[in-house]
Design a protein around this nucleic acid. Structure first.
Lengths: 343, 343
DNA sequence: ATGAATATTGCATGCGCATTCACTAATGAT
DNA sequence: ATCATTAGTGAATGCGCATGCAATATTCAT
């Protein structure tokens, strides 16, 4: 059936050299003469030989060395979400450029992270990125014991000494509140992501904190499940009450767009005339001219390149101390917030 | 530094059995007594042992057997595009459910596919999916020689005997044209994706064919590069001429939304009052109430599950003949097309 | 040209596991 | 109870490669 594939021995025989020579020809920096390397590379090309990465990984697993597979595990939820899609796309390009491959694992709830990590570890990944999910203390310990660098992206776990890169959610929430308060709003509502989600909670906490400083408390709150539909439904609930908010802050742009579309088409409300709206993330659709969503931008490009850089240096030198990076969100002014009417 | 990880030998010693027994305990169907398997699994759990997938893959590489890595390669362009993000998300879940891992490779142009495939093959992937990119005849041959099943998704290559799953682009184009013609439109324009892109070309061909049957030819055409901005700019060009189209068909929803936003905010045109608009794909944002984009839906769920099913059976039995599946697009009526004014 | 230093080279080995083979224990039939 | 099965077991082996080591080829200084 499937013929045995071409190995370094085949090349060695064809080139009249030893297998070691073939191996060295494909290992940059290995001791081998230029002439012989070139000869071997030519023969290899003719035969269609490609080194077997699996076998290569096997043989680096010596008592002193660490087994290197050249693969980075990535654990992600909600890949279909534009924000995550962009993140993964960027990450993928950068990590490839550094010579690593990406082993992608999609999880549904946060509970599956352990399973995912276990599976990925069976593949002897050189490192792992966890997007918007939590790492248990126990698994963190396991990773450390195995010498696998971990990068928590968009999350941090209190008291866990692990690399992380994230937006400053609390400050982002404050920023949104500050802007709405300064614009004169007084009946300010919040729509969160999934209940119990730490990211959403942090944004809300910062938001509420700043409101409190202005002598305000949250006018009302709903959960929008981080989806467009969830945001739309939350808006309907928010505005079905007798007293309506004059401003809404959403923990994500996707939900904010849900609110916007529901307002325009189902509730007959104009933004920002009837109420102001702020999102979070700055996904591409937020900037579409018909939306013009005012939002808190996450500097995804910088965050991702920082994450990759940090992970890569940790993979090259496992003894490095974890780095913790927080980026500040930036308020992007567009068209969905205006000064509240004095009335 | 990083301690050597726990191997089957460690477990064997701790459990007082042979290494073979440990291996069999972790191989479903292997000859071992229930009692001993349970004992071994317990000891393994205590020690935190997990079989090494790399080593496992090595040892299945025998002369008669095919080396199985348990990994499927996925080559993708434009991961940040909502349509592809959704596709990858679905694919990821289904292939994981079948027990495979996903090795993801992002390419920029179609030219990088060869490189990507070569890299992935070094990892001895059991199969590969290529999303919206073309496979050279030479690489197809290499894959066949290595016994690696290939699935072309969203593309097919004339005369190449490889699995593929795709939407019937030509028919989809016809469908769009038919609907616009029946609605009485006469000045019908098209906005394509990237120049030279086969998918876009097929949609255009079917579209033009049906127009011709109605005695019409394309009123004008532009390229929108498959992006929102590209679509918006194409629309500006389309409507800057003295004679304006009364209907526009876009080769993707993302571009159609670009057209819509540009029309509303930059050109002061109403859809469908000033012109009708049809997209292709039916991405989530197409259905957002404020958009209500009439479009040709790709049955992504069915297409992906068909693709996974086909690939998996090919990976289980390499001798199977390639399967070629085409799905019909479905016209989704929303709010962006109306009967043309007699005038 | 000669010995010392250096650059190359091949041999042999092991990474962790699955699997074959030869063998022993358990089970069944009579 | 006896023999024929079958189930279960461990020792040994190899998957394809990188690398330590000892041996050889090359270069250099004199």
């Amino acid at each position: 059936m499937a013929k045995r594939s071409i190995t370094s021995y085949d090349v060695a025989k064809a080139a009249g050299v030893s297998q070691s020579a073939v191996s060295r020809a494909f290992s940059p920096g290995a001791p081998i003469s230029k002439k012989k390397r070139q000869l071997i590379l030519n023969v290899a090309k003719d035969l269609g030989y490609q080194p077997n990465a699996i076998a290569r990984s096997m043989s680096t697993a010596r008592k002193d060395t660490h087994q290197r597979s050249g693969m980075v595990g990535v654990i992600v939820t909600r890949l279909q979400d534009p924000f995550f899609a962009q993140t993964i796309a960027d990450f993928s390009r950068l990590i490839q450029a550094q010579g690593w491959q990406m082993l992608l694992f999609t999880v549904d709830g946060e509970g599956d992270v352990n399973t995912a990590l276990n599976t990925l570890m069976q593949y002897k990944i050189d490192g792992v990125v966890i997007l918007s999910a939590i790492l248990s203390e126990q698994m963190a310990k396991v990773c450390r014991a195995q010498g696998i660098p971990v990068m928590l992206y968009n999350r941090s776990v209190e008291g866990l000494d692990v690399n992380h890169v994230q937006i400053h959610n609390h400050d982002g929430g404050r920023l949104a509140a500050d802007f709405l308060v300064e614009a004169g709003h007084r009946r300010i509502a919040f729509i969160g992501g999934e209940d119990g989600d730490a990211t959403s909670a942090a944004r809300e906490a910062g938001f509420v904190e700043r409101l409190a400083e202005a002598g305000l408390s949250l006018f009302s709150r709903e959960s929008g499940n981080y989806t467009f539909e969830g945001g739309a439904e939350a808006a309907l609930r928010l505005f079905s009450r007798s007293e309506r908010p004059d401003a809404v802050f959403c923990a994500s742009d996707v939900m904010a767009l849900g609110v916007m579309h529901a307002a325009r088409t189902e509730m007959g409300l104009e933004i920002p005339d009837d109420f102001s709206l702020i999102g979070f993330d700055d996904i591409p659709a937020a900037g579409w001219p018909g939306h013009g969503l005012t939002t808190i931008r996450q500097p995804v490009g910088r965050m991702i390149s920082e994450a990759v850089e940090c992970l890569v240096s940790n993979m090259r030198d496992t003894s490095l101390a974890p780095s913790k990076q927080r980026f500040e969100g930036q308020l992007i002014l567009r068209k969905t917030v205006k000064r509240a009417q004095p009335g």
